[in-house]
Design a protein around this nucleic acid. Structure first.
Lengths: 211, 211, 211, 211
DNA sequence: CTTTAATCGAGACGGTACGTCTGGTCTTGTG
DNA sequence: CACAAGACCAGACGTACCGTCTCGATTAAAG
């Protein structure tokens, strides 16, 4: 039986890949995910439809890769601007004051989530992920997990310095302030402000009960 | 210019409405949101397509109403089974022990979220809501808000009894345990267990910092 | 078994009938037969759709009756204007000169066929009749036959006066000049002029072969 | 403004074209013109609807081409059967006896018009042509004109041999026997028999007046 | 360097669903 | 009961995309 021969990636056109990423992100920002079609991406990128179907299996996959690619380029640019190596760019600060450090990062996250350029494609990815488990796993793994791990690291450090109780599970702990933020952004259930971010940190660290 | 005259809702066929709700929920459970089509709903319901387009403007709207309707019927059934009036069915318990009460409700929520029958349509609605702000607002208002208000009420009662600090904003406080649950369910970032629900309540009430 | 009870024509609204005739003729002139819909006629006439379906079985039937009605009113008006009784209005002239008489009538027919107001509805009727045998029979019987009979009468008179050979069948003979006219009008295969009408009469009466 | 680019006819699927012609003719014979739908043709032909819309602009156009194609194939088949070249197949006979020649051809036409297989599609085409001038012109030009030209040629020959008066216009003369035939067929105003065809020729050639 | 085979842009193809329009029936007051 | 109004089921309309499938015309690797 003749198996569908896999494409030879060594002969792949870098030119087309770039054009497809650019077209995909542009269209999703302009018209939204639902109105973005593979046909539209191909036309905008000046590429045959088959070239897309050859390398990706769905619209969501194209978007995910385009998004990851954008993230990598942004990070490389930031690292270059900062004159440091890329790895250190995303690390959480550790000034010794856990609350201040968390507020600092969460405020930055709030600003990022409020950035309209960021909005459309990421929303699209989030929405698709809810319904498409396989994609969701890749989104979490490639886009979210690295960021979450930084919180885990910082909380572990805080546990060693005694700022956080030792028996607390950092994976659950970080959700106390990260998930409310994400949820508000996804569902639009409330404003995303620096004050809100601060409140989340205060409540989560100090607890709701009187001490 | 002749404005498209709105349909006369007093002449609406209750029979068709029911059939459409049933067909929509059935198809979404069987095939998922993306593969459910208006044409399919109409065919399954034994209804003309126009009858759907006359009363709803999108697939998402049909689903939302079908879902709200299902909720109302379930609640009415539950109230009848319990022999009480519908209003009291969804009220949070108040045994005096806030942590126990919250764990009780959150565990029930975990069970509900893990129920496969509940899964498909609600996921579909959530996904659509992320990308469709107008729908999202209606989902929040009609499906989520009533439930969240119960938390606010319970937390206010706890503040009066001194179990929660007076300066805490209940709207934010409830997100500490509700949002992480929702987030895990939406993104599949972790298991949804009773133990997890308990941990969220403990962390949120007691805080992460040592006391 | 309950037979579909026939409508009681004694209670029929004359008002509606008139309005429907007027609306049908107006719409067919404005938009053509194909774009004229029962729905449109009802709306234009300010009448319920059922009122049309109750009394007519098809769009073509409505048009036919509207057309017959229009003819009757026109004829009555002409008779009144001429101060004679309606029956004599459509009679062919008999001056003793058959060729002249036929040319006179055919020229009038040419003028009528070239009248744009006449065009659309009659074309529509003709087209529908080609495909709808039952309608065609009624069109022929109610609209065409009376006119053709006049030719038969005139030709019979000519046979008695010796102007036409006795063994000629008048029903076939009249087709020699009437059918070419009708055909050109239906198919647009050539101009419809007085000269053409004259030529038809000359050729038909005198024959094509030399004598 | 991006003009809707015309399809590339060199890449057209001959297979589909055939299947569409066959399906169109079959459906029109079975159900008539009005009940034949583009959707139905596509389904019957095992073809996407777009493939029809890509190459034809209306149901009438499809039918016209299907009909022309059928005619060409029939003629080619006849030529092959006769062992002669296609051009000579449709030529009118010239035995020197004009009346006999015309009767021969008209009788054949009568038989053809009475053939049920021929009936439905051609009626449909004729009906549409009456209302659709653009189509009518193409029908006349592609289907009728070639046949009519043969009469013109034969009549010209007759004029040279003295069998027809020199001042007669052949284009008009042929209508004397062709149009009545067409008219009877279209309107069902009378039987189509060999005797009728003969009478038309006799009347037209000899004239109605005594000599 | 060719040669040659896979990728490329392009777009026709068989399909599915869209949202609209109309047909013909049924229902609901009103006169 | 006929009527105006219009909701109903049904299904065709013409359009937009889907994912697959040819087509030459570049490429880029292996000869």
């Amino acid at each position: 039986m003749a198996t569908k021969t896999a494409p030879d990636s060594s002969r792949r056109s870098e030119r087309s890949r770039r054009a497809i990423y650019d077209a995909a992100l542009a269209l999703i920002s302009e018209a939204g995910y639902a109105k973005t079609t593979i046909e539209g991406i191909a036309a905008r990128a000046g590429v045959g439809k088959q070239t897309i179907y050859r390398w990706w299996s769905s619209k969501a996959e194209v978007l995910l890769e385009a998004f990851v690619d954008m993230g990598e380029r942004n990070m490389a640019a930031a690292a270059e601007a900062a004159g440091t190596d890329p790895a250190s760019v995303r690390a959480l600060p550790d000034t010794g004051d856990l609350a201040a450090d968390l507020k600092h990062v969460l405020r930055a996250t709030v600003d990022e989530l409020n950035d309209p350029a960021f909005e459309a494609p990421y929303r699209a990815l989030a929405a698709e992920g809810i319904v498409n488990r396989e994609l969701s796993a890749r989104v979490v793994e490639q886009l979210l997990e690295p960021g979450l791990q930084l919180y885990v690291d910082r909380l572990r450090a805080a546990q060693e310095s005694g700022a956080v109780r030792a028996e607390v599970d950092p994976r659950i702990a970080l959700e106390l302030f990260v998930s409310p933020l994400a949820q508000r952004w996804l569902q639009g259930t409330g404003e995303l402000s620096h004050a809100y971010a601060d409140a989340l940190v205060d409540y989560a660290l100090g607890g709701l009960s009187p001490r």
